[in-house]
Write a protein that binds this DNA or RNA. Sequence first.
DNA 1: AATAATATTTAGGTTATCCTAAATTAATTA
DNA 2: TAATTAATTTAGGATAACCTAAATATTATT
Lengths: 227, 227
Amino acid sequence: MDQLIPNQTIQDYLKHIYNLTQNGQPANTNTLAERLDLRPGTVSEMINKMAKLEPPLVDHQKYQGVRLTPAGGKMALKVIRRHRLIETFLVKVLGYSWDMVHEEACRMEHIVSDEFEARIASMLGEPSHSPHGEPIPTSALAMPPFYEHTLASLTTGQYATILQVPDSDPGLLRYLSSIGFTPGSKVTVLNHSPFDGNLMVTVNDGNASHVVGLPITSKIYVKKMDS
Amino acid sequence: MDQLIPNQTIQDYLKHIYNLTQNGQPANTNTLAERLDLRPGTVSEMINKMAKLEPPLVDHQKYQGVRLTPAGGKMALKVIRRHRLIETFLVKVLGYSWDMVHEEACRMEHIVSDEFEARIASMLGEPSHSPHGEPIPTSALAMPPFYEHTLASLTTGQYATILQVPDSDPGLLRYLSSIGFTPGSKVTVLNHSPFDGNLMVTVNDGNASHVVGLPITSKIYVKKMDS
DNA sequence: AATAATATTTAGGTTATCCTAAATTAATTA
DNA sequence: TAATTAATTTAGGATAACCTAAATATTATT
C-alpha cells in the first residue's frame, strides 16, 4: 500500500478533491486552487498529470471539473485517515490542545509509515472520530457515514448534540472551546433569527447565552434531539 | 528558532557534515556525496550555496573540504536532537523495536515542530541518550561529551559495559540485540585475535560466546571496567 | 442569439535539486 | 620533479512544481 501513495503535492490535491466532491459535484479548478493556495494554471497542469498517471487518480475532461477515480479515492482516504489519527494522537497522547493539531498533522500525514499509523491507531483503540468529531476512515479505508444536520438547520426551541466542528482554523477552535462548543455538548436554541440566520444558544443548559452566525453554524454538525 | 531551520535537503547536509567533522578534519565532497547518496557535482554545488547563505552554514575553500560554521553547527545539533528524541519516543512510547526507528526518524526530524519536540522530550523525561546509546543534545543544543573507547580497543581478559551502538543499519541492530549487545550489557573479551582484530566475547557472563569482527567492534562504544 | 463575464487551459518562464561529463586542481608515485 | 591518479569543481541539461499572462471555452446576461 505504501508504494502506491504518491508524493506530498499529489496527496494534498487528493485530500482537497475528496472534500470538494463530497456534494456529488466535481471539484473545479479555481476552488481547488484557492484551497491549495496555488494559481489556477498550476492546478490545471497538475490535474492533467494526475489524470495521466497509471492508474489515473482523477477523472477529468477539459473545463468540466475533476473527480477522484477509485484509486484516487483510496489514496485520499488513506491520507485523511492519517491526518485524523495523528490529530487524535497529538491531543490524547501528547496533550496538544485541539486548535494546535491541524498544522502538525498536515505535515506528518505525508511522511509517517504504515507502521506508525497502525501503532497509533492501536494505542488509541482504533478511534472512529478525531477530537473535532471528524470521522476517521477504518484501516480498510471505509469512511463512516457523513452527518446530515448542521447547527444552522435548528430553529427556536430545538436542541441537539454537537458531533463535529471544522478542524483547520485555530482561532475558531479556541473560540468554540471557550463557549463550550465541543463534540458531545448539548446546545439549545433560544432564538433563531430568520433574516441573518443567527442563532442564540445555550450550552449544556448553562446560564450564558451566545449568538452565533451562519458562517459558523453551517459548519458544525449535530445530532438533533426531540424538542 | 524554527525559522532559522532551513529545508530538508540542507538539514541532511548539516547532519552528515556534523558527523564527518567530529574527528577534527573537514568533510570532503566525495564522502559526503556517498553518505547522502548523491553525485559529487551535486554536493559541490550545494556546499557552495550553503556557504553563501546569510548567515553562512559552512566554511569552505575550494578543494579543501567543508566545516560547519557556528550557525550551521547549531542547526545540525537541532536536527540531531530531533532525530534521537524521535527514535527514543518511537521505542519507549510506541513500542517500536530499535531496528525500525532510524528511517522513520529520518523523515520525521525534518517536519515536526518545536512544540512536538518539546512535548516528547518532556514526556520522556528529557532523555540524554537514544535507545542505541547515542547522546541527545540538550534543548539548549549542548552535546554531551563523546565516548572515548570502542569495543575494538579491548584485549583478552578485559571487560566493559556497552554504551552506544550504530543506529542506522536495521540488520546489524537485529543481530546485536540477538546476541545481547545493547547499551548497559557487560561484555567480557575471552580472546583478542591480533591479526584480524576479531574479538571472542561473552555477554553478561553468559555461556554463549560470539566472535565479532572489527567492522562492528570499531563502531561500538564502551566504558572500560577494571580487569 | 449576441455579448459580457467568468472559469479554465495553454504558453513561456523561474527556481531548486538533481544528473553526466568535461575541465581543473591536488595528491601520489615513479 | 614529472607523470599519473584521484578528488573536486564547473558546464550544460533534466525534471518537478510553481508562476504570470494570454488564449480559449463556458456560463450568464442582456
